[in-house]
Structures are given as C-alpha cells and as structure tokens.
Design a binder for these strands. Sequence first.
DNA 1: GTGCTGACACAGG
DNA 2: ACCTGTGCCAGCA
Length: 103
Amino acid sequence: MTGDEFREAVLDVVGLVPPGWVTTYGDIAEYLGHGGPRQVAQVMAREGAAVPWWRVVRADGSLPVHLAERAIAEYAAEGTPTIRQESGRFRIDMRRGRWSGEV
DNA sequence: GTGCTGACACAGG
DNA sequence: ACCTGTGCCAGCA
C-alpha cells in the first residue's frame, strides 16, 4: 500500500463515521490493518479539513487544544456525548460515543 | 544512511 | 485525575 492509498483510505473511513459518534486514530489504523495511530494523525493534519475531522479523537476521548473549540460546537450540534470537567477540560464519553466500525 | 518531527498510545508515579 | 517518559512508524531534511 502506497502513501497515497493509505491517505485516501483514512479519509474514506473518517467519512463513514456517523454523526453523533466518534472513532480514534488507533481504531482507524487497526481497522485498515495498516500503519499506526501516528500515521493516521499525520494524514489528518494534512488533509483532515476535507472530512468531518472532529469525529476522530484520541483514545481517551480528548482532543489537541487547537481543535477543541471548533469540535465542541460540532458535538453540541450533532449530539455527541461529551464530558465536561470543572477544570475546563472536556472529553468525549468514549463508553457511549465510540463507533465500533459497523456501517 | 541519520536524526527529528508529529491532530498518538500506554504505563508509571 | 494529572503529568512525564518511552515506544511507535512514516515522511522529510
């Protein structure tokens, strides 16, 4: 599998995640059976803008700071289960919102 | 080839 | 719950 193919595959999978649900970088890599979380992240960093990038989060349900603000608005709009800490941090409720990969 | 970088993951403390 | 260190793998200088 070439780098280009991998890139497309990643973007495809992200497009499959239904509204209100999320998946993780590691899950995508595992689902594709190729590469690792960091490769997926690499793709998202470059071309994530083309897909619903907010449906891809870290394994613990958190997001990098520079994306959090935008993403929170999306979650509110599509009803994704989030958890708000008093410390101001927030994360996805992975128990309820993690998409298993079924279409 | 060699070294560094990341929208990560996981184990420790 | 939080922070830190280590492992990871592909891409690029």
